[in-house]
Design a protein around this nucleic acid. Structure first.
Lengths: 214, 214
DNA sequence: CTGGATCCCTCACGATACTG
DNA sequence: CAGTATCGTGAGGGATCCAG
């Protein structure tokens, strides 16, 4: 990493030296959702070669962004988690994600959706002002990916996994992007079967007001 | 660029595909300050090989982030400027710059400070809440780099160049980082001759309250 | 199974030189 | 000024192998 240097005394350049390498910020993105083991990261980043993952993790660890933790029992093994410094990258990751989401377009052949990406996408698109005093919980299903979001007090908590008792269950696919980007209305999306819901349709209206692209 | 792909249908991954290549975001950083010609960019990024600059500019243009403009007279030639899409990267650049500035430390041997980097650094560190109703103008000199900042209505306009009639002139060097990071107080900085001012010292206190790292 | 290490191959990157 | 041309290197990609 010491060779990949920009030669500028500048915070932004320094940031790129630390996390600008290929794959590095995607690893951070997944770790922002929660600690993970090596193989979890591989699953979330199917196209990363294992040697690259190894060296990125080592670099991120040396940079003080990630730390290894030996899990006791059960589930012995090594876990990787963000340090506080690493967690501070959240703002930057969300800002870039927000920008990218606006230019996402339709999925390209072979592109996959992962659980962590979806969690971060929802966190990224959350609009606190639009939430107001809303209090609602959602379970969002995309294929076999299930995540959930709880909105309260103008904040959203988005994590992986199902949420029994959610106010609304939304079943959808990659077309959910069109919904969040308001290229279709909730009505249209339901009619065109881009989404299927279990619960009060009004909660879907609220959802697209609180989580949106652009 | 089409080969350097992450295979994920995710806004953040898409963003990295568009601007994640080495040097790309540094070019964007400089263009956020204003349109530039090829040689201006080279001057601001002394370590970038010209062929790399060429191909990055081409990629950024194809991605709709940068546009070439043929300048009529005077100063015939090609100018590069950000499109609106490119300008929308400002939030992300500032967020990353803010993170990096906190881990900047002391300059490494051979590291340089450029005008554009300094302009963006000041924009990045501006804290609107701390500005309040302040109305002040500053000229900041680092070696032969001169930039200026005007603060009014809770907003700061930071651009390159001198500002005749500025309320305060601050002459300093890379040690300005310690000041913005509040590792030294303005008093100490003046006493240790890390900065020299022309104008009311109270304006320096205001300055470090409005522009700060961390 | 997890958590890597090792090998090889290729192409993108980087340095330098040169040109319309 | 605004780039090409050329060429060497090494990081990234992909497969395979191995230890606990």
């Amino acid at each position: 990493m010491s060779k990949r240097v920009y030669g500028q005394y500048c915070g932004f350049a320094r940031a790129l030296e630390l996390v600008g390498e290929r794959w590095a910020l995607l690893i951070v993105r997944d770790l922002l959702v929660g600690p993970k083991r090596f193989s979890d990261l591989q699953r979330g980043l199917p196209k990363i070669p294992s040697n690259i993952l190894t060296s990125r993790l080592k670099e991120l660890e040396e940079a003080g962004i990630v730390q290894r933790r030996l899990q006791p029992r059960p589930s012995n093994g090594v876990f990787y988690e963000l340090t506080e410094v690493g967690n501070d990258l959240e703002d930057a990751v969300m800002a870039l994600g927000r920008w990218g989401a606006q230019r996402l377009g339709e999925p390209r052949p072979g592109e996959i959706v992962t659980e962590d990406a979806m969690v971060m996408a929802l966190r990224t698109t959350f609009q606190p002002e639009a939430a107001g005093r809303t209090r609602a919980s959602y379970e969002l299903r995309l294929g076999d990916i299930v995540i959930n979001a709880k909105v309260a007090n103008g904040r959203a908590s988005v994590v992986a996994g199902p949420l029994p008792g959610a106010d609304l269950i939304i079943e959808t696919g990659p077309a959910v992007r069109m919904l969040l980007a308001r290229e279709v209305t909730p009505e249209q999306a339901l009619k065109k079967k881009l989404v299927r819901i279990t619960g009060d349709p009004k909660l879907l209206d609220r959802f697209v007001r609180m989580f949106r692209i652009g």
